[in-house]
Design a protein around this nucleic acid. Structure first.
Lengths: 260, 260
DNA sequence: CGATTCCTTGAGGCATCTCAAGGCAAGTGG
DNA sequence: CCACTTGCCTTGAGATGCCTCAAGGAATCG
């Protein structure tokens, strides 16, 4: 095993949010059954009867600008949010003001599941680019779920998946080198983009080096150096936030045999 | 921020389990309403009607010996397990055979929630000492939950709490020094023992240095050295697995202002 | 076009890893 | 009951991967 250092975690500029009030500006409400994301998002796997039931909720949409907070850590939990477009980061902060990114979210992914535990959001959510979300009133969703075992199952599975995802991340943070971490991150991003119909090999990073570093437990300098190293190894071509995966298998090898 | 290295994670002796068959030997079934753990465990927060409903399930108990596996990673998911006595570790493993501890469980805590995501256990569970669990058939629990919004809420909250817990751990792994990690670990252990009526300041570690290291993302040697350092700082008295917290506030200071 | 933000790269330091040796306790076989 | 093995822990010495600090370049913005 390589020796490596745990990242004191890259520092992310702490406060760059915009008051919530501005976030509430909503678009028209939407129906799940007509949504282009219905195969990725909440209704995934539900039969049409259940989807119709979801339609009765008519989720309000919210539009956010880059840098704007959807909700803050500690705020009362009332909604789950489904990403319609754009990218988000989830952050938790420590008393000393440091902030750690715990996940990135893209279209079709659910945010806010950690709020259930204690009735307040355990992490904050911030848009990394202009974005839209569906706001799903949790109480109403729970009411609906009480009448549909399927829907209940779907929500439970979402949560469970979040737990599994974090297992993976712990493995990453606990036992892997900088190169392995970044490779894992890029491969994961690639797969998710592909699932959304984008190119898996060429994409635009929505997050800064500091945010990647925070997520992966390393400094932004190490992220930058690792990008450069991958480029020298002819695994990637990197130009600022634009990334092209040149040698997918090589990248997978860099990620090595980690993570089951 | 201190510079520190990420742990290539302590190596835990890989295979030391006993075939499942032997684990099925059960004690008598039990009722939640009569369980001494009812204020810590699943029924926590439920009204008496719901607890009575839980009683109808009559959870089978399983007894396990030290080192025995309750379930393995990848195995089909059918039960949630509530710890009645003893201590467990949850482990995930990577292709290269390394194993990482993702959590420790004690009386009243639930295991197996990560199995829901894909219908198979995403981690394995191994008894660190002789132990007993209640096996909760998930299908039956879900059926029951479909009829009780309260119960459904309880299960959802359990999951959400697991997500929040892992956030905390990620913060630990991502951005803290060896001393901070071990301090956090000990303080957490202390609190949980206290909640169970044990001394918060003097206890017996059920896990090895290697397992602690794996959990905290450092090598067993560093765990050992950090224990020694705490002892020299007169924060702890350590004798093998016996730990006495001498200076609680000092330990909290060592853990510093991290984690909200 | 100055200010700002973000990224890159270098040089040096250090926390933690790796490797190695030795001690203690419990279990095992003769 | 003793020699031997085995598992677990501790400690030391040296190596190193990543952090820290610092400087400079490029793009964006008002």
């Amino acid at each position: 095993m390589p020796a490596m250092q745990t990242a004191p975690t890259a520092l992310v500029p702490a406060v760059r949010f915009i008051p919530i009030a501005q976030a509430v500006a909503t678009g028209p409400n939407t129906h799940c059954s007509k949504c282009h994301l219905k195969d990725l998002c909440l209704p995934r796997g539900l039969d049409s009867a259940d989807v119709r039931r979801l339609d009765t909720l008519m989720f309000a949409q919210r539009r956010l600008k880059e840098g704007q907070a959807l909700y803050h850590e500690g705020e009362g939990f009332h909604f789950l949010y489904a990403v319609r477009s754009g990218t988000f980061k989830s952050v938790v902060s420590s008393r000393d003001g440091r902030e750690q990114v715990t996940s990135f979210h893209m279209a079709g992914e659910m945010m806010g599941l950690d709020g259930l535990a204690h009735g307040k959001h355990a992490s904050g959510s911030i848009a990394l680019e202009d974005a839209e979300v569906c706001a799903i009133p949790y109480v109403q969703l729970a009411t609906l779920a009480a009448r549909s075992a399927e829907l209940q199952q779907v929500v439970s599975r979402l949560m469970s998946r979040e737990i599994v995802r974090e297992h993976g991340l712990m493995m990453l943070l606990g036992g892997m080198s900088a190169e392995e971490r970044l490779a894992a991150f890029l491969l994961n991003l690639s797969r998710r983009l592909q699932a959304r119909g984008y190119s898996p090999s060429e994409f635009h990073l929505r997050m800064s080096r500091a945010e990647i570093g925070s997520y992966l437990g390393m400094t932004l300098e190490t992220v930058s150096r690792t990008f450069s190293a991958f480029q020298q190894q002819r695994l990637l071509e990197v130009d600022k936030k634009h990334v092209r995966i040149v040698d997918l298998e090589g990248l997978e090898r860099a990620f090595a045999g980690k993570l089951q």
